[in-house]
């Protein structure tokens, strides 16, 4: 019987855009603070000149990266994220410039968990982690009800164990 692979269609919640913006702001902000603190110290105690140059370069890179990953990136990631689950495979697909499409057989799945940090909790979202012996994968933002349903669904599908004669 031929199995037809459908392109994944389910999307992740749009609320994640705001959350990513917040978390990326915090992340980049703390890096920036650290570099500025070092720069101040460097001027105060007269450190080597190459330290200053390096710090200016790092600050420049951080600012550029912040603009990209706060303003631009979250929208694209959310818009391009697709996943799908059926009884044989889990599919994950994301990315606009670099498109990645992963296919994981249910039979190889070892565990599935849901996570929720403070920001996700406020938005009523969960992230779903899927682990195989080889690696672990994350679907970043799924509404609570859907996430819990998906978790038990995957768990029951994955229970269909393949006899691959390992323990």
């Amino acid at each position: 019987m031929e199995y037809i692979l459908k392109e994944p269609e389910r999307q992740i919640s749009t609320k994640i855009i705001q959350i990513w913006r917040t978390t990326n702001t915090i992340g980049h902000g703390s890096f920036l603070l650290g570099f500025v603190a070092l720069l101040t110290a460097s001027h105060y105690w007269d450190w080597y000149n190459w330290v200053n140059i390096t710090l200016y370069v790092l600050i420049g890179i951080t600012v550029l990266s912040a603009i990209f990953s706060i303003l631009i990136e979250p929208v694209f990631i959310q818009r391009t994220w697709r996943y799908d689950v059926d009884e044989n495979f889990i599919q994950l697909k994301h990315g606009r410039w670099n498109v990645e499409h992963k296919i994981i057989p249910m039979a190889k799945i070892e565990y599935v968990t849901t996570d929720q940090g403070p920001f996700l909790r406020k938005a009523g979202l969960y992230s779903l982690n899927i682990g195989t012996t080889a690696s672990s994968h994350k679907i970043p933002a799924i509404p609570e009800k859907e996430a819990l349903k998906l978790r038990s669904l995957i768990a029951s599908y994955a229970n269909v164990k393949e006899d691959d004669s390992f323990e």
Binding site: W97, N98, V99, K102, I103, I104, T133, A134
Partner: peptide, 13 residues
């Protein structure tokens, strides 16, 4: 095929 754990197909710009 049966020995493969998972696959990934990717494409950069």
């Amino acid at each position: 095929r049966e020995r493969i754990q998972e696959i990934e197909v990717s494409q950069s710009k």
